[in-house]
Nucleic acid binder design. Structure first.
Lengths: 245, 245
DNA sequence: TTTTTCTAAATTGTCGACAATATAATGATT
DNA sequence: AATCATTATATTGTCGACAATTTAGAAAAA
């Protein structure tokens, strides 16, 4: 099947590590977390087929278990289920990308207001620790970790806000944003938001609600502005290239 | 092939012989819709146990199918799954109730802005038709239909806004709101919002964004203000009667 | 060579059976 | 009589097997 490594740039073998083989028992949550992490770190590119049998072998779990997890991912819009065809990592359209940012904007503002209202210093400490982790990943040039941690900052924010509903929604939206960034981002991306998380955290520590909300809004605008949403997805380019040759 | 037997859709529960045929025809979506409708109409009160075997018999489907639907409902927070104990209709806490309204507030504003931006007359017509249906249900004193239709107005609004993301979120939040109203509402509730949907629709028809947003915010405030945050009631009910129809 | 048709392989959808756990029912003990 | 321990029943959790469908490949025809 796989003749040339170069030919399977688009959607080939799953980049999921096969290192740990069939251990005794792996929970649904573990399977879910590993797939989500892989997607957030772009080791599973959009469009990748997630075969049930293949995943079951990788995780050493039964197919039914994997199937359950895939159904959950599909409901969270991170994965698309095609009847009788299987599960694929979602490829959000330009339209969907805009919708995600549109919903995130007021939701993040809500989260910021809640955190300000709490005035919990321990809360700020956790945020600072996360920002430090982001900084470390950036210095280590670990681009995958950078992308994942950037998304997780917002999830952490929502969790610390005390609204489990907002946290759940943010988890979903953050994962989707990772997919969107992978699909539509220009190469020089991460520079766009290097210090913004730190600045937002500082505004929260100061209890400056207006500044925090403004910084957050600008931050989201910056990320969205970095995207090239005028043209089709990068995946279509691959298709065109393949057809030309 | 033969669908003659299916034409007999009485209120009587599907006996064994009908169950056999229904197994092939009842889709997951149908099971999902019927349970959601029953919950929205308060025929399945919060706290009701949703036994897998019992539901499977009622719908004439396999337990695995029912289990899938229950997992989906759990992910949408309408149902709670207790490990090794089963599925129960969710009983949102006071905290969760506040969270729902808190998230709905900016989300509904977003939906209103989108609809205004569209300026589609056909869209207004559909809204008016729905409001008329609400009016009819109110005149018919069909309290269950009133509650369900009230929630569905907001879902329809989100769908017509053109954002599938917002629509999906609103569907979840509307169902939760129905549960919340059942748990915490004082008896004299629906009076709270008799004409508000019509007024919002009119503002949308006029293209008056500021008025529409203000009316919507006030509407949500009114509903929330009607809630009584001191008691909670749940009673046993047999599933067959509640799911019939 | 290109297109079409048919066959074979692989993958998903569905179900029933068995094991693990919780609930109830019963009987024994204080 | 009340409480606790034990047994019995019912429900959920998990798995493998089989059927239905799709995909890939081979063979045949244009």
């Amino acid at each position: 099947m796989q003749s040339k490594a170069a030919s399977r740039r688009g959607r080939g073998e799953p980049p999921v590590r096969q290192a740990e083989e069939a251990a005794a028992t792996v929970s649904d949550q573990e399977i879910y977390d590993r797939i989500v992490t892989s997607i957030m770190e772009h080791r599973l590119p959009p469009g990748t087929k997630l075969g049930e049998d293949k995943l079951a072998r990788i995780f050493g779990a039964s197919r039914a278990r994997v199937r359950q997890v895939l159904a959950r991912l599909a409901l969270e819009r991170i994965v698309v289920l095609q009847p009788n065809r299987g599960a694929f990592v979602a490829e959000p359209t330009v339209e969907q990308a805009r919708e995600v940012f549109e919903v995130r904007q007021p939701l993040e503002a809500l989260v910021v207001r809640r955190i300000i209202a709490r005035r919990d210093p321990g809360l700020i400490a956790r945020l600072r620790a996360h920002v430090a982790a982001e900084e470390a990943a950036r210095e280590a040039r670990d681009r995958r970790a950078i992308i994942r941690l950037s998304g997780e900052y917002h999830v952490l924010l929502a969790e610390l806000s005390g609204s489990s509903l907002a946290a759940g929604l943010m988890r979903e939206l953050a994962s989707l944003t990772c997919l969107i960034i992978f699909l539509y981002d220009a190469p020089a991306v991460p520079a766009c938001r290097d210090e913004e998380h730190a600045e937002i955290t500082q505004a929260l520590a100061d209890g400056d609600e207006a500044a925090a909300i403004r910084l957050m809004a600008e931050h989201l605008d910056h990320v969205e502005a970095c995207l090239d949403l005028s043209r089709g997805a990068a995946q279509e380019l691959d298709l065109d290239a393949a057809l030309a040759g």
